[in-house]
Design a binder for these strands. Structure first.
Lengths: 196, 196
DNA sequence: CCTACCGATCGGTAGG
DNA sequence: CCTACCGATCGGTAGG
């Protein structure tokens, strides 16, 4: 009952601090001692809140996955819209999730390989399903004559790759808002660089 | 003199085996014992050929950087060509370097953060310079009316992000040759997904 | 949340 | 290239 909106639980603090460390130094190169020091406590104390180092990574990765899925579902649920419009909205949603927490996004994108094999397989299945969602949207757009691409799978991979580079350079306090960026990315990917 | 074209020097063997391990398990999570086992020797023996674990990573990263720069210079040296054509050739060169050794490319793209601070700074300076090369090419294309984009820097980042995702899915024995892929990528990035 | 500690493993070296 | 080893550090635990 002491907890206010601005006070993170100790567990949430651990997650947040670990996210920043995992992002800059990598999961394997980050020690629990470093994490403890950053939190201002002793290494052993962390284990009253979590079971293992991997558990933190697991939570970060799967929380982000949930957000991407929820955002996509919400952005594309309106079937009355053309596929190209729904694709635009899906792109905007993806960018919004990425920019809301760039550190967690970077961990989600790069550190999943350090999950245990079982968790890693589950993670990759989710990622594959998410890619299929984009692929299907592009495929629908092709069939409706709104989009053109020799291969929807290829197009989906390229599109997501462009979006996922964002955590590498996005600064929350920059001139461009997440929505500005989303629009530019969508324009560039949909319209191309060549003058028409 | 025993060395034939198909026989790698021990040092080259170490680099190659380490590249594969660094790629799948990450630099920090790969131990010198694992590397030794993969080579069929004892851990201590590696140090007759190299000075440190980081030296291997250093060589992989900077060798790839050299290849990207050499390829770009070669692809864009003909000033009589339009900027859009030179950009296409630069894309093809980049894809060629990536596909020639996807494992080394993946290490180059993801593991540079484990270089020592001095080497890391040098590496990032090179990467920045490479990106500027693409940015300038795009800028020239915009000024010549061959390309259109609200921001050349933004366009360059997005373009390279799409290309650099390649090592994550490219299979050397797949149906598409590197040149096929380069053409498709160039088409998609230059022409866009939207029907014109 | 701390103190004190566990066994395991790390990168690297000396001497042959 | 191996054997034998170094000091340091790792993730994690017991007991308070």
């Amino acid at each position: 009952m002491e907890t206010t909106a601005s006070t993170l639980s100790r567990k949430a603090q651990i997650d947040q601090t670990a996210t920043a460390l995992f992002r800059t130094r990598g999961f394997a190169a980050t020690s629990m001692r470093e994490l403890a020091t950053a939190l201002g406590i002793e290494a052993g104390s962390i284990y009253s809140h979590i079971r293992s180092k991997e558990e933190i990574l697991h939570r970060i990765c799967f929380r982000m996955a949930d957000q991407f899925f929820a955002g996509f579902a919400n952005a594309t649920q309106d079937d009355t819209q053309p596929a190209a419009v729904r694709l635009r909205r899906a792109i905007e949603s993806h960018v919004r999730v990425l920019t809301l927490d760039v550190a967690a996004s970077a961990v989600f994108l790069h550190e999943w390989r350090h999950l245990s094999e079982a968790a890693r397989n589950e993670f990759l299945t989710l990622r594959e399903r998410y890619e299929v969602n984009f692929r299907r949207l592009i495929q629908q757009g092709i069939e409706a004559g709104e989009l053109h691409a020799p291969d929807a799978a290829f197009a989906a991979l390229t599109l997501l790759a462009s979006l996922n580079w964002l955590p590498n350079w996005f600064k929350p306090d920059g001139k461009l808002t997440p929505d500005d960026i989303a629009h530019r990315l969508a324009d560039q990917l949909l319209l191309g660089l060549a003058h028409s």
